[in-house]
């Protein structure tokens, strides 16, 4: 390229984190796919935050079993009257309320597990890619071994053995995802460590941690953010699948996968019990995936 000074005249270049975040959002505006994704994710985030306000009923209250969507609840001594927007399940809990509260479960556990997996994966990837040699050999082989295991087989064995609890699910996700993250980070580091600015840092005697964390890592953030978005989708699927297989969070608290598991034997007679949770989880995953695609599209433009 020729002597390009600034690409974006409309938004001033700022050094503040807030300004840069605004820039990123402004960029996303140019990808309608990314916008749809962001809207879906945002919808569920708002739903999760406002769950106590917008849920029509207590999620675990057993009111009237086997109600079709739109059925009216006349009210009783404890609970006020209302409409079962999406019907009720086999023991009479309001599906809409359970979906709303269930979004909290997913949106707490999936990001938390992903962030933890990223911490582990980034540490391993930085070490493997920067030091190379035996550190790399060891970590890469370890990752190969864990990754050679079919993921779900791994989850099923770990969780069946240690029991289904939130902590075990998060632990299993970290164990199974961090090798994949490590590989991506390692690949990026192997590329970035040959840049002249890294050589410049080395020639002025910077310590290794500084070079890894300050010189290399910030420049790997683009692909990592896209990957994190995709991975959030995978983790959401995983939590859903585990719930569906009966290995998810223990009942009675609402969990989308668990809701399908509990009612799937009645799916043919009462499709609403399973279809709505399926739509909920699919839309959230779709949101993550579309957002990732939009972010990638934007990152490729520059």
């Amino acid at each position: 390229m020729s002597d390009a000074t600034t690409r974006d005249e409309t938004i001033p270049a700022g050094s503040g984190a807030l300004l840069r975040a605004l820039r990123a959002i402004a960029l996303l505006r140019e990808s309608w796919i990314g916008m749809i994704g962001a809207a879906l994710v945002l919808f569920w985030m708002v739903t999760a935050i406002l769950a106590p306000v917008i849920a029509p009923f207590e999620p675990n209250a057993t009111l009237m079993p086997f109600q079709k969507p739109g059925a009216v609840f006349p009210g009783n001594a404890d609970v006020a009257a209302g409409t079962f927007l999406l019907g009720t399940d086999h023991i009479g809990r309001d599906i809409a309320s359970r979906l709303i509260w269930g979004s909290r479960t997913v949106l707490v556990h999936a990001p938390f597990a992903t962030v933890c997996a990223y911490l582990v994966g980034i540490l391993m990837g930085l070490a493997a890619g920067y030091y190379r040699g035996w550190v790399d050999d060891l970590l890469s082989r370890l990752a190969d071994i864990i990754l050679s295991f079919p993921v779900l087989v791994l989850y099923v064995i770990i969780i069946a053995h240690f029991g289904a609890s939130a902590a075990n699910i998060v632990f299993a996700i970290i164990f199974a995802s961090s090798p994949g993250i490590m590989r991506i980070v390692r690949g990026l580091v192997l590329d970035l460590r040959n840049r002249d600015y890294v050589a410049a840092a080395q020639t002025r005697g910077e310590p290794a941690w500084w070079i890894m964390v300050v010189e290399i890592l910030p420049n790997a953030r683009g692909p990592l953010i896209v990957d994190a978005c995709l991975r959030l989708g995978y983790v959401t699927i995983t939590i859903g699948v585990l719930g569906f297989l009966g290995l998810g969070l223990p009942p009675p608290d609402p969990d989308w996968g668990g809701m399908i598991n509990e009612t799937r034997s009645m799916a043919l007679a009462f499709p609403h019990m399973v279809v709505f949770p399926c739509i909920a989880i699919s839309s959230l995953i779709l949101g993550f995936n579309l957002l990732a695609d939009g972010l990638r599209e934007i990152s490729l433009r520059d």
Binding site: R195, D196, Y197, A199, A200, R204, V214, E215, N219, R221
Partner: peptide, 16 residues
């Protein structure tokens, strides 16, 4: 000290 060859990666793009 040293001046590097490639102007496009002599500076770290992430810092001012």
């Amino acid at each position: 000290q040293m001046v590097f060859q490639n102007p496009f990666d002599t500076l770290n793009p992430s810092h001012t």
